[in-house]
Computed example of a mutant assay.
Amino acid sequence: MARLVFIEGQVTASAPQQMTSLSDKLARFIDLTLQERTYLANVQTELVPMRAGADIIRAGQTYRCIYVLSQGMAIRYKVLHDGRRHVLNLLLPGDLIGLPGCMFQSSLYSISGLTDVVVCPLSFDAMFELFRRHPRLGAAMFWIAGHEAALFAEHLVGVGRQSAYERVVRLLLELLFRMQIAGLADERSYDLPLTQELIADTLGLSVPHVNRTLRRLREDGLISLQGARLTCLDIPALSRLADFDGVNLGGQRVPGL
C-alpha cells in the first residue's frame, strides 16, 4: 500500500479525496492482469503531498524520476527571460509528470500545483524495470506519451491559426471532456480550474482579451459562468466553432492488448 511521505513545506489536503494511480491511467488503454496490477501497486509506494503553487519540477534542474499526479491539478509552464509565462497544459489526476523533460539533461519546463496536490514518484530504474518485465505496460506507457503529443499538436494549431474566440472555445471544451474522463465534470459543466490570467498565458492572449471573449460567449448564449462554475450551453455549436472533436481526447485503447 502506498504511504504518505511528509517533507518540510509540504502538506496533505485538508480532507481525504479519491486518489488516482498509474493503474487507473493505464487501465483506460489496456485490460490489466492481476500480476500487472500487483506490480504497479508495488512500485507506487510513496505519496508526496504538496501545497498549491509549489514547484513539483523546476525548469533547469536535473531529476531522476517521473511522477504520477495522484490528486489535485497542476500546470506545466515555461517562463521567458523577461518574466513572461506560457502555460503549456493543465495536468489532471492520473497524468504523468516529467515527460518529455526526463529525456533531457535538465528539465525544460516547470510544473507546479494549481491546487494542493499529491504526487507519486517513480524512479527511472523502476520505469526501466517496468519496460523489461512487463512489455504490455510499456506499450500502454508509449500509447499515453503519443496521446499527449497529439494534444500538444492540437494546441499548436489553435494558438497558431485560430482566432481568440476560437482558442478560448477550444480550451473550454477540452477542459470539459478531460475533466469528464477524470470524473471532475458532469455532462456539460465543471468548476473552471484556470483563472483568466492562466487562460491568457495558455492561449497567448492578454487578460482583457480573455475577459472580453468570455463575455461575448455568454452574450452569444454559448456558455454560462456562475462564479467558477462554467456550463457549455451548446456543445455542438461550440465544437463547430473550434473544429473540436472530443472523442479523441479519451484516447483509443491499445489494439490487440
Rank of each mutant, 00 (worst) to 15 (best):
R3V: 09
V5R: 10
V11M: 07
T12E: 15
M19D: 08
S21H: 09
S23I: 04
I30P: 01
L34P: 04
R37S: 08
A41V: 05
Q44C: 06
P49N: 09
M50N: 08
I56L: 15
I56P: 00
I57Q: 04
Q61T: 15
T62I: 05
Y63C: 08
R64D: 13
I66A: 06
Y67I: 01
Y67F: 15
K78N: 11
G83Y: 00
L92W: 03
L96R: 05
I97R: 00
F104R: 02
S106V: 08
T115F: 01
D116Q: 12
V118C: 07
L122N: 02
F124C: 10
M127F: 14
L130I: 01
F131G: 02
R132K: 13
R136G: 01
G138N: 00
F142K: 11
W143S: 05
W143P: 00
W143C: 04
A145T: 12
H147V: 03
A149T: 12
A150D: 14
L151N: 02
E154Q: 15
E154Y: 10
L156D: 15
G158P: 00
G158S: 14
Q162G: 06
S163Y: 03
V168W: 03
V168F: 03
E174A: 08
F177R: 08
L184G: 01
D186M: 10
Q196R: 09
Q196V: 03
L203P: 05
L203E: 04
G204R: 14
G204K: 14
G204D: 14
H209P: 04
R212Y: 15
R218I: 11
E219T: 07
D220S: 10
I223F: 12
I223Y: 09
Q226K: 13
G227L: 14
C232H: 12
I235H: 13
I235C: 05
P236E: 14
A237S: 15
L241Y: 11
L241K: 00
F244C: 01
G250S: 07
G250N: 02
Q252E: 15
R253P: 02
G256W: 12
